[in-house]
Each structure stands twice: as C-alpha cells, then as structure tokens.
C-alpha cells in the first residue's frame, strides 16, 4: 500500500513568554501512515493528542522532526513547506475535522458546507446539491439549511461542521474528537462516511473520546502517554 505520511522525530513544546517557561507536549514521535489506514491516537488528558493533530496540520509549529506528505505534487515536508503550499494542500488534500464549527456571521449552513467544494472549483449549484445531501445525511433538518448556524445548538453546529469537513474526499484526514456532542443518528452517519472514505483510500489519524464508535475502523494505535510502551510491544495494537 502506498505511503501517505512519513513522520520522523516529531517534537513539540510551547514557549510561554509571559511565564518565562517551556512546556513539552511530546517528543521524538515517528510513524508511517499508508493510504486507507486509520491510526488512533490515545493517551490521558494533556498527553498531546490534539497537539499532535494540530502540529501535523501546521496550526502548531513543530520544534523538530519531519512530516513528509506524499501529495499529488510530490513529497513535501509539511513542517518546512511555504505557508501558501500548506494552504493549498488544506484546500485539496488534507482535511481537519474539529469538535467545533467556525461559523461566519450571515453565512447559511448550506453555503458553509458547500464552500470547500466551490473553493475546489465545483460549480455553485453542484456544490449546493452536495451540501444539502450531506446536511441531510448527518440529520440536519431541511428547515435549517438556509439559516445561520451561529444560532444552532452545539449538536446541530457539529453536524454542519462534519458535513463541511467531510464533503470533499481528502488524501489525509485528521479527526479531533468529531463524535463529541453528536446524537446516535449523526454518529452512525459519521462512522459510515469515515468507512466510505477509508475504503476509497483516505488515510486518517484520529482522537476519539469514545474509540468504541470507530473500533472497526482502527488499524493501529499510538499511545502518547509519557513512558507508554512502544507501539510494537503492545498486545492490543495491530501493527
């Protein structure tokens, strides 16, 4: 199977200038991820799971290491790539699914969901059709499609968020607790969509508060708890 991501010696910590101190998040993490593979990150609170996802996405700047992403344009080190290239890859090949919707004032749910498709060059009516399809799939009532999500409940906002984040198939998908605050129906729809994307070759790295939701999708686990045994030494990890 083709490699999508090669992570070598990834290290991240934070400098808090106002406290004059450093805080380590994780250090020297290495792994490979193939197309269609699902990697679960686990560890106690504060172990650095979400930090790892954000570092891979370049929302956080790593202190050391390499993240070689096999893009359609060739292999690119995400830690050192130009910002503009990272922006381009985020629009086309790398997705990040968070727990929270970043809604914009005066933008309807369907427009927000259609946006990634329009940005990727799909026609506006085509993008809108697909947006409605996914809003429906995640259980957002059609009476809400043209409303502004800023007024929605947390759960409804999360459904819009998922529809937007998963509408465009990606090569690499980073999932930061996407099932949080979802009802059972939306959870089923999410897992079905992830399964479909995995089958089509999307590589995924996820953090899940309740990993049981996606148990059958998980291929490998990395435990970020400090001093956790190495991946290959663990009995509960399929390597």
């Amino acid at each position: 199977m083709s490699v999508i991501l090669h992570v070598q010696g990834l290290t991240k910590g934070f400098t808090m200038h106002h406290l004059g101190s450093q805080m380590a998040a994780f250090s020297n993490i290495s792994f490979d991820l193939n197309a269609g593979e699902f990697l679960l990150l686990k560890g106690q609170n504060g172990a650095g799971k979400s930090t790892m996802l954000r570092t891979l996405y370049r929302s956080y700047l790593a202190q050391a290491g390499q993240v070689l992403f096999h893009s359609d344009h060739g292999v690119i080190d995400l830690l050192r790539a130009a910002d503009v290239d990272v922006t381009h890859l985020r629009r086309t090949e790398i997705g990040f699914v968070t727990q929270f919707l970043v809604a914009r004032p005066r933008v309807s749910a369907e427009d927000l969901v259609a946006e990634p498709l329009r940005m990727a060059g799909h026609s506006a009516p085509q993008a809108l059709d697909k947006a409605r399809y996914w809003l429906k799939a995640f259980g957002v009532k059609d009476s809400l499609w043209r409303a502004y999500p800023t007024t929605f409940s947390g759960g409804e906002q999360q459904k819009v968020n998922l529809a937007r984040a998963l509408i465009l198939p990606r090569k690499l998908l980073l999932l930061d607790e996407p099932t949080a605050s979802l009802d059972a129906h939306a959870r089923v729809a999410l897992v079905a969509r992830l399964h479909e994307l995995k089958q089509s070759g999307t590589a995924m790295i996820g953090v899940f508060h309740h990993p049981d939701d996606v148990e059958h999708l998980i291929d490998r686990v990395i435990d970020l708890t400090p001093d956790a045994p190495n991946m290959e030494d663990r009995a509960d990890v399929a390597v």
Binding site: I76, V84, L89
Partner: peptide, 12 residues
C-alpha cells in the same frame, strides 16, 4: 520574510 525562503512545490 514571509515565505521567500521556504521551499515551494505547489504554488506558482
């Protein structure tokens, strides 16, 4: 600099 020194492979 903003991106003048960073390697760029995607964007023109």
């Amino acid at each position: 600099t903003l991106t003048l020194d960073a390697p760029r492979i995607v964007t023109t």
